[in-house]
Design a protein around this nucleic acid. Structure first.
Lengths: 248, 248
DNA sequence: CGCTCGTTTGATATATTTCAAGAATTGTGG
DNA sequence: CCACAATTCTTGAAATATATCAAACGAGCG
């Protein structure tokens, strides 16, 4: 009488349904997408900058991130992904990858032939629409990151990153948003906030001193959500989760 | 025997056709989109952060930009738009605007009821696909901006901005990419590159001293495209214009 | 248990910001 | 079309947030 094994893509479907309502047919078509599951190790690449990937990729478990290396050797991280996220349609659909997608931790991914994704978008307009929405929201998040990296100080940037991660965890129904493990080294946090590992270290310490967070290794607890939101200049509107009625 | 007055939306259609091939029906449906044309003055807002816009918006002439104001009062510009660009579907489709869209210069826009856009995306899958592509490419550009602002020095950032602008001008078939007028004040350049107006001024002067650009008021000429590309760490791959065979 | 990778801390360097004021350009009303 | 007002641009000097360099410390792993 245990839970039936959930379909590997069900988390992704649930996430897409944040944006539209699917008919049973739409849902069935999504779950019927051909795919193979791969287990990957931390640090393993899913897509390399310059690749011509043939598959879309859904993260089933673990965490992943996207990044690019610039001319002076610096690395910039663009996003952190959690289970259920479509970690790559962009590169696959556009034909040639313009950035890297890499595992942050060990985890599983599902690879879906891009042709099948294209087909489902054509034949099931609501699915196509949901994919478009997904891309639009991602764009909104990128805009916020440009502002974060461009116009906020180190402490605000990091607080903002923590708020976003917490809120997206909550929206994905993964763990508690006020106490979680941030699966990133300080160097990775630095590359996500355009800082130096050294400065990230000092700034995290500062946030802790200010009573905004508590840390133990990589686990973070947030004693007072409102305070962290204020410190991080965090306005969740850009995540467009209204309909999902995510509240912390 | 003069040119027939071109359809106001034809530039937009041409731009979308960079991403797919349309049937005559698709093209006709796009040109038949209901719309009203508005003339706007420089600085006028098209969308305010927080709005619930009911229309998508196509830029017909002039320049526009998107930006957001952060908590400390800083402004971050996310993109510069030129004629033919869809300057707003994102806010209209997502329901509530998460940033501002504003005219950079005087110009005309076409407002299209969002419902009509949604309908055409449903009924004309190739159009829906092109819109999705458009959004994906925009995401790629945002990623590059995150990297630009986050991991490059002032001189490289500004050179990169100039390269992108030149290349997109060329791709849009507007003016010459090696000599153009950048319709931005130095303060706006500062907000696009996350710098200070003062520092932009000094850095532009530096680029000029290094022989990378020549300036006269707001017009810029690029004596040697390759050199500027090198100085700006500019790799146009992220614009995904391959098919458009844009060469400078 | 030793090694590697990540974290922590200190001292110093630097790119960029801030503040301030004058010059030039653009816009505008008479 | 001129004169005044308002931006925008330019330049200098001083301040600062963050980067760089360097080294020790700690924790996980084979």
């Amino acid at each position: 009488m245990s839970d039936p094994m959930p379909h590997p893509l069900s988390r992704m479907v649930a996430k897409l349904e944040l944006w539209t309502t699917f008919s049973d047919l739409d849902r069935a078509a999504l779950l019927a997408l051909p795919h193979i599951v791969r287990s990957l190790k931390a640090q393993q690449y899913i897509v390399w900058d310059g690749d011509q990937p043939q598959n879309a990729c859904v993260l089933l478990s673990g965490y992943a991130f996207r990044h690019k290396i610039v001319g002076n050797g610096g690395r910039q991280i663009f996003s952190i992904h959690m289970p259920g996220d479509l970690v790559d349609v962009q590169n696959a659909l556009l034909g040639r990858a313009d950035h890297n997608v890499q595992m942050l931790t060990d985890g599983d991914v599902a690879l879906i032939p891009m042709e099948a994704v294209r087909r489902i978008a054509f034949r099931h307009p609501h699915v196509g629409m949901a994919l478009w929405y997904e891309t639009l929201v991602e764009g909104a998040i990128f805009r916020e990151w440009i502002a974060n990296v461009g116009r906020r100080n180190a402490d605000v940037r990091i607080a903002h990153l923590l708020c976003e991660f917490a809120m997206r965890l909550e929206a994905s129904g993964l763990g508690s948003p006020l106490g979680f493990t941030l699966p990133m080294t300080q160097e990775q946090i630095a590359d996500a906030t355009s800082l130096t590992p050294v400065h990230v270290n000092r700034t995290l310490k500062l946030l802790e001193t200010r009573g905004l967070i508590t840390r133990d290794k990589r686990s973070v607890t947030i004693p007072d959500w409102r305070q962290l939101v204020a410190a991080g200049d965090f306005n969740p509107a850009y995540l467009h989760l209204e309909c999902a009625s995510v509240q912390i």
